[in-house]
Write a protein that binds this DNA or RNA. Structure first.
Length: 206
DNA sequence: GAGTTGATCACT
DNA sequence: GTGATCAACTCT
């Protein structure tokens, strides 16, 4: 497939966060840069649900320069830095005033595989295992796609960074489980708000 | 288990 | 303004 997938309409991002999270599975995340184009099929996400969710950065309605974009309209990018050296990419969901988002945790490389391998300083040997090391994990994925703080707040229905239809003939079978590494979130850590495509080898933690 | 740095918060 | 704390992770 050499054609670059077309972006979804802005309205695609509206709807309840858990629905949008499931709907994102199978979609394609595209990033066009001067260095080339790259895209992944989204296979794993996590939902973060507003002021009530103790696992969310917006818990308690915390409005700071970092979380600001979560309080805005759906369909924008929430990118944050973590552990001093990594970035995580989220799709803002829900309406203005409902600070919710979906973290994209893993994807399957479908375009620009060599470019992504260079960015990740990874050697591809043709195995699924080596391909999955490009984009299986939230910070691996942002490194492969060259997503960082510059993309904070960008609209995701228009280039250079956008969501596109995945062109799947059948909707993927979805599995759910608790979100990863939010032990501090108490009971909220147990909510099954991690979603992935069942059996997909590019998921970060099967 | 170390690495690495900015956001956040509780203080002056 | 200053200093302490630590994070929605990755690699060995």
């Amino acid at each position: 497939v050499d054609a670059i997938p077309k972006p979804v309409a802005r309205e695609w991002f509206s709807g309840p966060t858990l629905e949008v999270a499931e709907r994102l599975l199978g979609m394609v995340l595209v990033h066009l840069t001067p260095a080339g184009r790259a895209a992944v099929r989204i296979v794993e996400v996590e939902a973060y649900r507003g002021p009530e969710d103790q696992g969310a950065h917006s818990f308690g309605g915390r409005l700071t320069p970092r979380t600001r974009v979560m309080f805005g309209e759906a369909g924008h990018a929430y990118v944050f830095q973590i552990y001093g050296m990594h970035f995580c990419f989220n799709v803002v969901t829900a309406g203005a005033g409902r600070p919710e988002a979906v973290l994209v945790r893993a994807g399957e490389p479908i375009l620009g595989q060599d470019l992504m391998a260079r960015r990740r300083r990874t050697v591809l040997d043709g195995t699924v295992r080596s391909r999955s090391r490009l984009t299986a994990g939230p910070a691996r994925l942002t490194e492969a796609l060259a997503i960082d703080r510059r993309h904070y707040g960008l609209p995701l229905w228009t280039p250079p960074l956008y969501i596109a239809d995945g062109g799947l003939s059948n909707p993927p079978e979805i599995a759910t489980g608790p979100r990863i590494n939010i032990d501090y979130a108490g009971q909220w850590a147990e909510r099954p708000w991690r979603f992935w495509i069942r059996g997909n080898p590019y998921v970060s933690r099967p």
